[in-house]
């Protein structure tokens, strides 16, 4: 049985009233969700908040998921992405009003490679960043990404192409 089928069976069980199924879904999908949000924002607390809020939404709107519309993973990623964008927009407004509330930049990490890949991804425009993270680290198809970000597949392709070109330009020289 594929992972996708297992997730859908667990979700069907949860929709039918098996409360423990949510815990099993959480154990399976919290890591990919956290990694996506963390790589996008580089903010640990925000990433934890988004994952927890995503599962609160799942509890509130559990009946709105139907396998015909897409996979459970895609459903959760879409929910998490919307929550993350809302939170980031709210933060931007607050920081514009009160810039002294802005937290310190994330600490540089131990290895030079890791630091560079973090910086390179962070410096991509947000729209390109989401596409490359979902494609490379989460193995989502371009159709799934298009559905998740509510953009045409052609736009996904073009953002991915630009993201790859930008990364290659940024990392050109010593590394590539």
């Amino acid at each position: 049985m594929s992972l996708r089928q297992t997730e859908e069976i667990e979700m069907a069980a949860y929709q039918a009233g098996d409360a423990e199924a949510l815990g099993r879904i959480y154990e399976q999908l919290k890591q990919p969700l956290y990694l996506f949000i963390y790589r996008y924002t580089r903010d640990e607390q925000l990433s934890i908040d988004v994952v927890q809020d995503t599962f609160i939404k799942v509890q509130q709107y559990k009946q709105s998921f139907t396998p015909e519309k897409g996979t459970l993973k895609n459903f959760l990623f879409q929910t998490a992405y919307r929550i993350m964008i809302d939170k980031l927009n709210r933060r931007k407004k607050w920081y514009r009003l009160m810039p002294f509330l802005k937290p310190e930049d994330p600490q540089p990490t131990n290895t030079e490679d890791k630091l560079t890949v973090q910086q390179a991804l962070s410096s991509l425009p947000e729209k390109q960043r989401a596409v490359i993270l979902l494609t490379y680290y989460h193995d989502l198809s371009q159709t799934e990404i298009a559905q998740m970000l509510e953009i045409p597949v052609g736009t996904v392709k073009s953002r991915l192409h630009h993201a790859i070109s930008s990364l290659k330009n940024m990392l050109g020289g010593d590394y590539l």
């Binding site: 919290k30 927890q52 890791k114 890949v117 490379y136 680290y137 192409h161 290659k168 990392l171 590394y175």
Partner: peptide, 25 residues
């Protein structure tokens, strides 16, 4: 899209994240 981008793949693979433990609530 990464088929011919071995070095870029290698570079992106170097991004490891340690996830903290946290509950669903």
């Amino acid at each position: 899209p990464f088929k011919y981008e071995e070095q870029l793949k290698h570079f992106l693979d170097s991004y490891h994240v340690e996830m903290p433990e946290f509950p669903v609530e």
